[in-house]
Computed example of a mutant assay.
Amino acid sequence: MSASTLQPLGITESVAFDMIVGDLTRRSFFTGMAATTLAAAAACSTTDATDGLGNSETRTITTHYRPVEVPRSPQRVIAASYWIPFQMYAIGVRPIGVYDYSGNFDQLSPAMQEFISNVSVIGSWADLEIEAIAALQPDLIIGNAMEIDEGVFASLSRIAPTAVFSADTRADWMTILDGVADSLNQADALNGLRAEYERTVAEIAEKYLGKISEHTWASVSFGHGEGEFSLQHPDSAAGALLAAIGVEFGRAAAATGTEYSYTTYSTENFTVIDDVTLVVHPVGGRGEPLAAVEAVLAQPTFQATPAAQTGQVYGVRSLYDVNDYRAAIDALRNLEATVLAQL
């Protein structure tokens, strides 16, 4: 049995490799660029305290690294982390710059594909393009502390006010989302979606209580390399959503406290889910099979598991892309239609 770093599901293996090695290259990249590009870009971050009538044009918010003074009504926002554009979509604010999603564009939902189409690209997690960010003249940059360390934060802050948010686990996307909404001065925009999400969780948990509780569950996907599979744990975003409706996980799947909220195993070790009677796995943004997942499910060792033997294996759209209330509601409805209503 082996455990290794696993990319957030929905990110292709090539993008994931960039994410793993990125931390080794970003520091030197930003250090080298700071003396030249950032000096010229610093002027872009200047914000008047008032509008001349005594009305404040800025407000101070709490972020991961320190309090940050941000525009009261930001107009040119950079989404400098992988999931931030998705969270901005839930709030209804379109960024002017995002990561390069070309490597896994087909895995995004049609709505997200449209949302980020024709938006300027600012590089990737492994290689943020500081010149591209500065050239866009943002008045606010938003990011996640899992992807923006303190050195990068300092560099970006020379371009524009930079609000970086964090949470204890990958399951706690609500904390990040609240921070994003606060930085955009749109906290109230989430009230309706939050209430709808809570109603949806309660409805599904009650309606399908018997069907949910009669099974022991696991969330299975591809691993980091060939010949590996992964289990998502309850402290992952997908795992937390399943737990919210009362899912009981198998012994190995129920583990928590792993660095990435996933554990990867050799496909020879599918016996770790021998206590599982129902398996869910990711599919593409339109419900299409994912080749890497299909390769895992085709393994004879998986086909010998109790869930596979009884046909209790289901692909669920959106479950692995939950980072806002809208996506969570969509994932729950997909789970209901694809799995719960079929049991």
Rank of each mutant, 00 (worst) to 15 (best):
Y260C: 06
T31I: 00
T267C: 01
R333Y: 08
L128I: 15
I96C: 12
T338G: 04
Y89A: 07
W217H: 01
F30W: 11
R72Q: 11
R59Q: 05
T50F: 01
S14C: 12
A298C: 02
G227D: 01
G246Q: 09
P282E: 07
V322D: 08
L297A: 07
E288D: 13
S28M: 07
Y65H: 03
H64S: 03
G192Y: 15
T277R: 12
A41H: 09
T62F: 07
V119R: 12
L241I: 03
M174I: 15
A218C: 05
D139T: 09
L38G: 09
L9R: 14
V279F: 02
I212G: 08
D188G: 06
A154W: 00
S81L: 07
T162Q: 06
V77W: 03
A134G: 04
F229A: 10
A34S: 12
F115N: 02
Q7K: 13
V272Q: 09
E69Q: 08
G285N: 07
I141H: 00
M1T: 04
E226K: 10
G311P: 02
G246H: 12
L193A: 15
A111C: 09
L231Y: 11
G210Y: 04
T62C: 03
A327D: 15
F105A: 12
G22W: 08
V70G: 00
F222C: 11
N323F: 10
